[in-house]
Design a protein around this nucleic acid. Sequence first.
DNA 1: CTGAAAGCGCTTACAG
DNA 2: CTGAAAGCGCTTACAG
Lengths: 355, 355
Amino acid sequence: MKKDSAVELSGVKEIARRANVSIGTVDRVIHNRSGVSEKTKQIIQDIIKELDYQPNIMARRLASNKVLNFAVLIPAVSDETEFWAAPLNGIEQAENEIRQYGIKVEKYYFDLNDKQSFVNLTKQILKTAIDGVLLAPSFIDESLAFTKQCDQLKIPYVLINSDLPKQDSLCYIGPELFHSGYLSAHLANYAIKDNGKVLIINISREIDNHHHLLRKEEGFRAYFDDHDKKLTIVKDDIRQTDYASVASSLKELLKAHTDAEAIFVTNSRVVSVARYLQESDHQKVLLIGYDYLKDNLAYLKDGLIDFLICQKPQEQGYKGIMALYQNLVLKVDVEKNYFMPIDIITKENYQFYRN
Amino acid sequence: MKKDSAVELSGVKEIARRANVSIGTVDRVIHNRSGVSEKTKQIIQDIIKELDYQPNIMARRLASNKVLNFAVLIPAVSDETEFWAAPLNGIEQAENEIRQYGIKVEKYYFDLNDKQSFVNLTKQILKTAIDGVLLAPSFIDESLAFTKQCDQLKIPYVLINSDLPKQDSLCYIGPELFHSGYLSAHLANYAIKDNGKVLIINISREIDNHHHLLRKEEGFRAYFDDHDKKLTIVKDDIRQTDYASVASSLKELLKAHTDAEAIFVTNSRVVSVARYLQESDHQKVLLIGYDYLKDNLAYLKDGLIDFLICQKPQEQGYKGIMALYQNLVLKVDVEKNYFMPIDIITKENYQFYRN
DNA sequence: CTGAAAGCGCTTACAG
DNA sequence: CTGAAAGCGCTTACAG
């Protein structure tokens, strides 16, 4: 009723007409299903190429009433791991956008302090029928075991926030850590005189497991090497993360180095340093740390923290889900490595920041 | 064949069944079309609410074979206005994503140096049948005349990159200029000693028309006021934008102020300042300017420019089209003011920057 | 190996 | 004011 015959057709119908076959057969070759003679297959493929046929995704999703299941495995959000609220947020945003297209997202939260919880969840996930996985590979060996199984089952997976060495992931979406340290050094450098002094502080119970902290430190140091800057770098590892312990470590450290002009904290625990500086009424020193978290922002506003480095945690979650969607539904290629921008947050721009 | 009767229905069919009407009638009340008795309308609306019915957008777009036409009116890209390549890029990206859903985007490019070209294009646009407009309102009065007509025709429009005073736009997507100047001052401040000196340089043929440059300047000055910083601020307006003219202006300026520790250039012409500093072999001075442009990046890499402020021009274009799409197709509300983040680009992070 | 038919969840004329 | 039917561009059994 709508189309008069003068209107040019397109889509499977037109292909079928030209090839003198039914649309069912066209569908078969489009999806590379078996049961088509080589000859008709060739004819149809030629026509598809000639017409530059683009399937209508909406119609496809509508007709194939299939739902796709994505599993998400990320750390649970807690006071200590507030960071993970942001990726989760992005994941849920993506979920809302593509629910329309028949995507279901099942979320699994592991305890960052409990390897076993991670392992248990991977087992649970593998028991269900899933089409794709979004993974934060916090525990390296355990993650490798999991991704290996995904490989075998031909389930694509996306890594966020930290990478796994040479895995066959669909893609990695997250920071390039070395450069964030390098950038921090540039910023710190504005406050450091020649022959001045800077402190690097790692605050983590698992400094040795958490190689990502070390990558930032390397980047930080590299900057000064590259620029032949003469300065003293003092590094301190603090392995007790409760505030009281951190404070007492800092007390000693700062007493020994009253001349430090800048402090670089390699993660979001910069908040403890800021708090200590405030409470001890320490003289102003340039302070750089990580992550757009509520407590950090408070000290940023107060001027105790000068710069926060942030790498769009929410977008990591969002992009992660969308990468699966693009690959599985739209059948398009996705970038193998999507490095997040290294954002500099200050008192003046934090209110406009978008995670 | 697919659904056995045990399966719960949903959608218009189920609503129709419950209301004891046909799906045609349900469709009428969903779209608020006339020709339904108050009584059945009420019944149907109640059921919709009860079921929390969410229409299937895919099915809707597929069935209603209607195309929506968006018009885009932005400056043409030229050597002088390379900036606009980025928004255009974002617009085209959005276009590709929503073409599927029957959206057509028609682009109109005006000459930033020619008001009349802008006016002519607005006339041309209004002659065609359009459902939404994306506008860069570079010429204020002319833009106001255009948006007024859009209001009358009930055509929603989105503003990008600069705003119009109290207009009934669907939304504004772009920078908040005052704060970008304010932030620049914070960065500059690291290089400025007490009682030091900083230069503000406006380079534009139309400084007075381009109030946005002045907003940045205000923000820049405000920072020092707010922080009771004692310093000398020297401001220079350069109205000849070719390099030779800028260079001769700078020569005088820098001779008179050899003690300047920082320079703030209120737009992307920071490139000319960087070039002059390099060519004249001027001593190192902290230089801040605007925009992620090829030439700027070259000087950033060389260390002549310290910071570039950038506000995601590509995303402005992308979000602008998507705002129209969300409003017109998905019928969801969009944020009235979407201020872009104020990004700080340095030598160390530019390679990870996403426009 | 191939085709005809029903269906996905909507919208659009048309008829009454 | 309302309903029945055709159609959007695909996919999915089923039949042969």
